[in-house]
Nucleic acid binder design. Structure first.
Lengths: 135, 135
DNA sequence: TATATTACCTACCGGATAACTGGGTAAATA
DNA sequence: TATTTACCCAGTTATCCGGTAGGTAATATA
């Protein structure tokens, strides 16, 4: 599976936050209830997004999360890469120490690389705004 | 991971068989050694391909496997779908009892469906011959 | 007929990962 | 000071991937 619930939950939260009054901080509890997602599980996901600067977090009463850019400022790819780690559909295209030992003679490698680029281009061409408007 | 070693091994075996003398039956042992793949693991994969009519199998001495079509008669997609079961990058596009309960209001569903079609089209447009010739 | 060679079948196993859950601590407000 | 929130860490359960072990059935050759 190329995209787990982790990444899909992250997208749903971003879309939900984009639909809230501008500037308002939304507590996680509200998001979890509205989206019917385990609050505990969401905590881990939101912390990733927060640390990466995708959302703004405020502790304490009246706090919560909010977007710090307009919805078109987030590509789907940027969010998925954060939460999923990678969008690569196969391990064959890994470089460095994890590289495949047959990469220099593998007849399928060019295909995997092409697929990699295609998927990356696909997700980078879509923003949270596109998801909102159904474009 | 959208394509596991199972599917990748299957592709490598098909490419290997395509490179052998036409009509010859190749024992699995030879394939496993040449491709450095666990023979036992390959057995399970080849049985799938054989049952689906992708290769011809002959028992006993002098037996083995061979292709029953020219290399361009096999799409990469047809082989991967067999061994992987599905090429879907997310479970969101599943239908029937496994369908997502939020499918009627999910803002991301159209995106997943589009990705599904894109990946399917990609793999169906490539044949074993393309892998052989590097086209 | 006996033996070697091959495909095929069933069952099992260890490790990794996904998807949570529980129990805290730290920061901010009322 | 009490409450509300984000954040941190450790465990848990189930699933699946990749592989192994030990057989049986089919075919050829001596």
């Amino acid at each position: 599976m190329i995209v787990s619930t982790k990444g899909r939950y992250a997208l749903r939260v971003m879309v939900y936050l984009a639909q809230q009054p501008p500037g308002a901080y939304i507590p996680l509890k509200q998001v979890a209830e509205a989206e019917e997602i385990s609050q505990k599980y969401l905590e881990a996901i939101m912390t990733i997004l927060s640390k990466a600067g995708m959302v703004e977090a405020v502790h304490g009463k009246g706090g919560g999360y909010r977007l710090n850019r307009p919805p078109e400022g987030y590509t789907v790819g940027s969010i998925l890469k954060l939460t999923e780690g990678s969008l690569a559909p196969v391990s064959c295209t890994a470089e460095g120490p994890a590289a495949c030992s047959r990469s220099d003679c593998c007849p399928a490698l060019p295909m995997w690389e092409k697929l990699d680029r295609m998927i990356d281009g696909f997700f980078e061409s879509i923003t949270i705004r596109d998801l909102l408007t159904g474009t």
